[in-house]
Design a protein around this nucleic acid. Sequence first.
DNA 1: AGTCCACAGGAAGGGCAGGCGA
DNA 2: TCGCCTGCCCTTCCTGTGGACT
Length: 401
Amino acid sequence: MGENNLTNFFSEYIKQESIFKQKSALQNNFLPNEITHRDEQIMNVAKILAPVLKGNKPSNLFVYGKTGTGKTLTIRHITENLMKTAETQKIPLKVIYMNCKMGKVADTEYRLIATLAREFGQEIPITGLPTDEIYSIFFRCVERAEKSVFIIMDEIDSIIGKIGDEILYNLTRINSELKKSQITIIGISNDLVFTDNLDPRVKSSLSEEEVVYPPYNAFQLQNILRERSTIAFREDAIEPGVIEKCAALSAREHGDARRAIELLRVAGELAEREQSKKIQLSHLDLADDKIEKDRVLDTILKQPKQYHVVVYSILKLTKNSESVMTGEVYDLYKNVCNSVNLRPLTQRRVSDVISELDVLGVINAKVTSKGRYGRTREITTEVGPEILDEAWKAVSEELGL
DNA sequence: AGTCCACAGGAAGGGCAGGCGA
DNA sequence: TCGCCTGCCCTTCCTGTGGACT
């Protein structure tokens, strides 16, 4: 492309009206004014938390629901409103939001409590203090603040899985020693059976109240998408039927609104890149593929090198035949390892790698018996051919083959 | 009915990194 | 800062097994 062409392209690009009016409305940290189809949950949570406005301690609360059911969104919505009211009424309230999945912030007991204490302006060394000390520092901070404190622990299942439930026990116990302040814990979890694995003492004190968020159905997703799209897109930027199809595609999975919104955003981006004036049904299909492709590629590339060799071997073998067996994969795997100077893992381990890849949804591996010819896994690749191609290219390149 | 293939997948332990308490 | 502990990856060794073949 010559220089003039390029200049033309850029000036044309500026002139071209964007499909988007406010793209941030489709970003996942967007906080809409109105939340659709969650009235019941919002009212329940609001009733549980409201006593704080009269100086009483609200019950601890647990919120369950699969991803994209509006848990984080509604809790943020409610607490923000609560804060406003508390401010005008001069009620001392502090809300701390923590996402427990964020590494380095809240992935150990020490860090988590330290993060909480820092919220009160307390300086805490990154390491070095005994955990007891951290607790008492935190305790003093809270007591000095003379406030009602809400601690929102999002994705709480992920830390409890990692560091155990003792931390929750300690946090709830602190409460009985506080005189001028009080702590209310709001746990948010994707895992519906999460509390079953908790220590009974923790369980009873923590899930004093529970609110469950069911998945959205296709109809509800449509409404949500409509609402967001009127903010996000120019008028008439969407062909009829697009919203309906987008909702249907996502409802088919498990009513994940986050995914539905992402799908619409990616479709919009693709439409814009094609310089199309409207989002069409075909853009949705492309977006669906793109998201899946990115997901698969992402998960593959995130794995260590050994896994790449296994994936490489599987992809190479499945080019010629529908399905392959563990043994074939392992033979090729060993050869490939030799040619890229990598010490091969044992078959036992590769067998585990294969089943891990299966769990990740990169491949399909089913144990079958071939009778006289043994028992093995039948490995197939279920994702589309163009995804395989990209994966193949990425992995080959990475291995230098 | 019995054999036997080609693995699956459990158990135990080695070795290593990274975090923890002192 | 250093040893200790823990969790993770991996190996070794092992037993288990569905069904085509004899």
